[in-house]
Design a protein around this nucleic acid. Structure first.
Length: 518
RNA sequence: GGUCGGUUCGUAUAACGGUUAGUACUCAAGAUUCUCAAUCUUGCAAUAGGGGUUCGAUUCCCCUACCGACUACCA
């Protein structure tokens, strides 16, 4: 009975999707596609308190930008599917819309003796917790304490049945078995054992809002949606025994999915996991897309920072996974081919911004001049630069493509090919702008202006150097001085390239301007 | 505190009992060039510590240290 591979990414719409979340989604996607299976998106919005408007849309848009397109859960226009259909037999995909289906499963567990009703209020539990903490102990609602608390296990039947009717703030808790060793297998971590004596009786369902907690909703939906593998973050490993026990209590062990727990993304320096603050502090995005929260606080995104989605996906894939050889550059399709959970690294991966930039640079180099020009034209426009043909911009892009990491770098690298420099880099000027140099440089300028052939790099370069050499002038000093006049700095393209691009008239103008300042 | 997970150059990782412990990023030096960038070459740099097991441990086991996750009517 080979089942079709079906995996899901189940984010909670409590804010923008963190890059670690994107990585989890990516690994799920790669795993599914490699096996010809389905990748499903399910929105886990059972906590109405933490719901953030726009978060769901953000998550889907972010995945879409990355090329991670779901087979189920979202329709063609990127909306979460709300009604079941032939293509979406498991809809709806928002847990808030699946509300009616969970209670019966929770009750089923109570009937089977795997769960019970609990009537302790949040305040009572809070007080209990504080009391025990004051005594230096930790309170857990579990096998050692449950009989001393208010629930259907400790109270007379008549009493709790009455409370069940009259009160609306009770919960259903899982009755954690005592002293049992739960043996689990993780696709990444291998065999893990936990004794149930350290585990507590988790709340599964709440009467107050008639909603399940994560644990119940997760198991029920994974079962109903016929999920075959659960690939999720490491933070879920501690609740894996509970999940195993739930599958067992429901009698679903035959079709229980296999689990794989991914390690976390760590901050580049210091201790702890990667957080929003690190991005602000160290100057790189931690989110795929820009996000503005309710307070108007802006978090930058990879997309807005100029990363190509292919580069972002590639760098994410390499953070905690490797193909087993030296290949580092992969397209999404290549990743689908090469990916394997066996090669996912167990330890947490520190994010490195330099490496992230390197990936983008590699992708930028691979782009066609046409595509980069498409991206650069609007930038030029925003700089107020007009009157240049597309052909001209393409020539510029061709010359600077391999010098840039982002399209946004183009302007900093070669704005002088569009506008005359307004300022001069002080350090460079101090070094090269000396009378002995610029008198010669101006003579070279005259030579260029007197050049009668067509202005091309090939035509100019030879004669230019020949002219300087024959006069026995210092090539470096003269050229840099001339570059200073054209660029405003002693760095940049070759003189012949610059002159060819800006043309004789503009060249003459810049030289005249320089002469006027002497 | 408890439970679980993790630990190879600064970072990401390779080596799934036998290698001069490899690769990439970063950094440094050199080559090249009219400068810068790019490119090429070279270099710096690691098995957390201690016990075992073994002819032999980065690799297997134990202890310690450190890091992390979890410990909610949040996911």
């Amino acid at each position: 009975m080979e089942r079709k591979t079906r995996v899901r990414f189940a984010p909670s719409p409590t804010g923008p999707l963190h890059m670690g979340g994107v990585r989890t989604a990516l690994y799920n996607y790669l795993f599914a596609k490699q096996r010809g299976g389905d990748f499903i998106i399910r929105i886990e919005d059972t906590d109405s308190q933490r719901f953030v408007p726009g978060a769901e849309k953000y998550i889907i848009e972010a995945l879409n930008w990355c090329g991670i397109v779901p087979d189920e859960g979202v329709d063609a226009s990127g909306n979460v599917v709300e009604t079941a259909s032939e293509r979406h037999p498991h809809a709806p995909y928002r847990q808030s819309q699946r509300k009616p289906i969970y209670r019966q499963y929770a009750e089923q567990l109570v009937e089977g003796g795997f769960a019970y009703y609990a009537f302790d209020t949040a305040e009572e539990l809070g007080a209990k917790r504080a009391e025990m903490e004051a005594a230096g102990e930790t309170f857990i609602y579990g096998q050692t304490t449950r009989m001393g608390l208010r629930n259907s296990l400790s109270m007379p039947e008549a009493e709790w049945k009455e409370l069940l009717e009259t009160r609306t703030d009770w919960t259903i808790r899982f009755k954690m078995p005592e002293n049992r060793v739960v043996e689990m297998d993780d696709l990444i971590r291998g065999h893990v054992e936990v004794n149930t004596s350290t585990l507590d009786d988790k709340v599964l369902w709440k009467r107050a809002d008639e909603l399940p907690t994560y644990h119940l909703a997760n198991i029920v939906d994974d079962h109903l949606m016929e999920i075959t593998e659960v690939i999720r973050g490491e933070e879920w490993l501690p609740s894996l025994p509970l999940h195993y026990l739930l599958y067992e209590a429901f009698g679903w062990t035959e079709t229980q999915p296999r689990f794989a727990h991914l390690s976390l993304l760590l901050k580049p320096d210091g201790k702890g996991k990667l957080s929003k603050r690190d991005g602000d502090r160290l100057g790189f995005p931690v989110f795929p897309l820009k996000w503005v929260n309710a307070e108007g606080e802006v978090s930058r995104g990879y997309r807005e920072d100029g990363y190509f989605p292919e580069a972002f996906v590639n760098l994410l894939a390499m953070l905690g996974w490797n193909p087993g050889n030296d290949q580092e550059l992969f397209t999404l399709d290549e990743l689908v081919q090469a990916f394997s959970l066996e090669r996912v690294v167990k330890s947490g991966a520190r994010f490195n911004a330099d490496k992230a930039k390197w990936f983008n640079k590699e992708y930028l180099r691979k782009k066609s001049v046409a595509e980069l020009t498409d991206l650069y034209m609007p930038v030029l426009e925003s700089k107020g630069v007009t009157g240049f043909s597309r052909e001209y911009v393409e020539k510029v892009v061709t010359l600077i493509q391999e010098r840039a990491t982002f399209v946004a770098d183009f302007w900093d690298i070669a704005s002088y090919l569009f506008v005359a420099p307004k300022t001069f880099v002080e350090k460079d000027a101090a070094k090269f702008w000396k009378e002995e140099n610029y008198t010669l440089a101006l003579k070279v300028a005259d030579f260029i202006l007197a050049f009668e052939g067509e202005f091309t790099k090939e035509n100019l370069e030879g004669p230019l150097e020949e002219y300087i050499r024959s006069n026995e002038w210092p090539m470096g000093k003269v050229m840099n001085c001339l570059r200073l006049a054209l660029v405003g700095a002693s760095s940049g393209l070759g003189i012949a390239d610059i002159v060819t691009l800006i043309g004789k008239d503009e060249f003459a103008r810049r030289i005249e301007y320089i002469k006027a300042t002497l």
